[in-house]
Design a protein around this nucleic acid. Structure first.
Length: 299
DNA sequence: CACCAGGACGGGA
DNA sequence: TCCCGTCATGGT
């Protein structure tokens, strides 16, 4: 059967290979598979699960294939397109960012290495929140394992050409999950309670991506998120950065960010939060991109 | 065994 | 408001 799908024009600059490199950074990633040419992933479109493959043949257009050969209704097509745009941050104009790097040693170095890398997003709010929560104060290797366990225990899956593709579980799928079962997956009690609380709030509709985006300013969003026990400033910033498309998000307490700055500037010790704030005042409006690029220098 | 990891919370200045 | 100890759990 001939593959169905569609193409999206690419913004400039855009480097798909750098995005792929980022996505391929952990062997424990369970929500998509990458190869030299692209990424495969199971996504929910409307009520259906669709297996897609994203590539950029010749680097000219982004090609989105529906691997199971289904064709999409108009609304589904629009929803999937939105998802892809959020995933690869296609609507961002990076030219001002590039221009800002001129005469800036640190930023210049980052652009030199990563120009065209877009913030690879997590369009699904629940997935983004849970990923941040499991990633609190643990090394990334373990965070990936926790995400994998949650996904394999509670998420949906589909098989294609002998490979199993999985989706992160929905909030509804946590409705009947107990704290104890999460503890058995090596989550701490606090993380388990926070995830169930978030799932409940999202199931009821009290918490949603749309609602957060409607809030006028970033501080309201932070307040809305950090009122949930177990979600602190780092998690709120992280979610604004990876899910809500907020360029100004700055996870100031992030140990990876601190280590990256220490490494880039050749410091003897990690910068303090106030030193980080002062440093980032050079890049107003681009805090999240600088953060994302700095993270890339660590691996 | 010690120290670290893409933190959060609560108490006390 | 800021600072600091504590908690929690696997990695290295």
């Amino acid at each position: 059967m001939k593959d169905s799908g569609f193409e999206l024009p690419l913004p400039h600059p855009f480097d798909f290979q750098l995005c792929l490199n980022y996505m391929a950074r952990s062997p424990f990633e369970c929500l998509y598979t990458t190869d030299t040419l692209g990424v495969n992933r199971l996504v929910k479109v409307g009520v259906a699960k669709r297996l897609i493959r994203v590539t950029c043949p010749h680097g000219r257009m982004m090609q989105v294939q529906l691997l199971q050969g289904v064709s999409l209704a108009k609304e589904e097509l629009e929803e999937l397109t939105r998802y892809i745009r959020n995933w690869f941050d296609l609507d961002r104009d990076l030219e001002p960012f590039i221009q800002m790097s001129e005469g800036d040693p640190l930023l210049g170095q980052l652009i030199e290495s990563f120009s065209g890398l877009r913030i690879v997003g997590i369009p699904d709010l629940f997935e983004a929140l849970c990923w941040a929560i499991v990633g609190q104060q643990v090394n990334l290797t373990f965070a990936y394992k926790l995400k994998q366990r949650l996904t394999e225990h509670y998420g949906d899956a589909a098989e294609w050409e002998g490979v199993v593709y999985r989706m992160f579980p929905s909030p509804e799928q946590f409705a009947s999950v107990s704290i104890e079962s999460l503890l058995s997956l090596q989550l701490t009690r606090n993380k388990a309670m926070t995830i169930l609380d978030v799932a409940s709030r999202m199931t009821s509709g009290e918490l949603s991506r749309e609602r957060l985006l409607k809030l006028s300013d970033s501080e309201s969003i932070d307040k809305e998120l950090t009122k949930i026990r177990g979600i602190g400033p780092w998690t709120a910033q992280y979610v604004r950065m990876r899910c809500l498309g907020d360029q100004t998000a700055l996870p100031i307490g992030d140990v990876g960010l601190q280590n990256a700055v220490k490494k880039m500037l050749g410091l003897n010790q990690k910068p303090t939060p106030s030193e980080l704030r002062a440093l980032f005042e050079q890049w107003p409006g681009w805090e999240s991109y600088v953060t994302f690029y700095l993270w890339r220098t660590l691996y």
